[in-house]
Write a protein that binds this DNA or RNA. Structure first.
Lengths: 141, 141
DNA sequence: TAGTCTATATATAAGTG
DNA sequence: TCACTTATATATAGACT
């Protein structure tokens, strides 16, 4: 919606992605607030930021290690200190992610149960968090 | 965003409200889907419809009863059959609403706990469901 | 990284069938 | 209530700061 039309597919340039994410997240919250104000509807919006993509971080890390291995010809050392992302920290993240994922799924079912009698239900895409980070914003309008 | 600019405040005309709600809900879901596709962010949007506003229905009902009382001069009869909304049904709705409300709050806390280490948290408005119905759409992108 | 600018794309208010 | 149309309001892509 600007100087040029863009395809609705993953933005490659990291810089552009961050800018677009920030702008569109603001826009989404604004639209949600308007819907609420105009129609008296309750609206909740949850956005998980793609910025702190720990799985991506791991891949980057592995790539770096692989590259240095190739360059140096040395062995792959899992016991070497990982400076940017500790394994323990990573494992915690992974565990948290699993917990969160399951809880969100459970919560979805609970809401469906609690309001079963008058519920219109749509969840076409399912929940897939594997490619995402943990930072998120929640807004209730 | 159309032929005429409108103020962002509750739409009075019931008909316009329903049309605007439907259109803007569609627009909100679309924006959420785009944000997800463009940026790889996970987005959840929950919209509670204002259409089946049971509390509003009760108030309407009470008003009608009050008016007929004034006109007829008769007593206020709680035992008279309520045609459009039974008390039992209303109580069920009220109970469901409370459960849902508490569960949403609990869920918010749970998510906060699960992701505490890397969480950016925003919930400026709190949750207020008292003026709303139960029908809702959920979308995950 | 966040704010401003501006041309353009998109959403949508009203109206119509 | 839905689908379509059209004029207009709003969101935003890209550039710059």
């Amino acid at each position: 919606m600007g100087r040029q039309k863009i395809e609705i597919k993953k933005i490659e340039k990291k810089n552009n992605l961050q800018v677009t994410f920030s702008k569109r997240r603001t826009g989404l919250f604004k639209k949600a607030a308007q819907l609420s104000a105009l129609c008296g509807a309750e609206v909740a919006v949850i956005v998980m930021s793609p910025a702190k993509n720990v799985l991506g971080a791991v891949k980057e890390r592995e790539k770096t290690v692989e590259e240095s291995k190739e360059v140096s010809g040395g062995g792959f050392r899992w016991d070497e200190p990982i400076d940017e992302l500790g394994l323990d920290e990573l494992e915690q993240y992974m565990a948290s992610l699993e917990v969160l994922k399951k809880k969100v799924r459970t919560r979805a079912d609970e809401i469906a149960m609690a309001s079963a009698s008058s519920l219109n239900f749509f969840a076409p895409g399912g929940i897939a968090m594997d490619q995402n980070g943990f930072d998120f914003d929640r807004r209730f309008f």
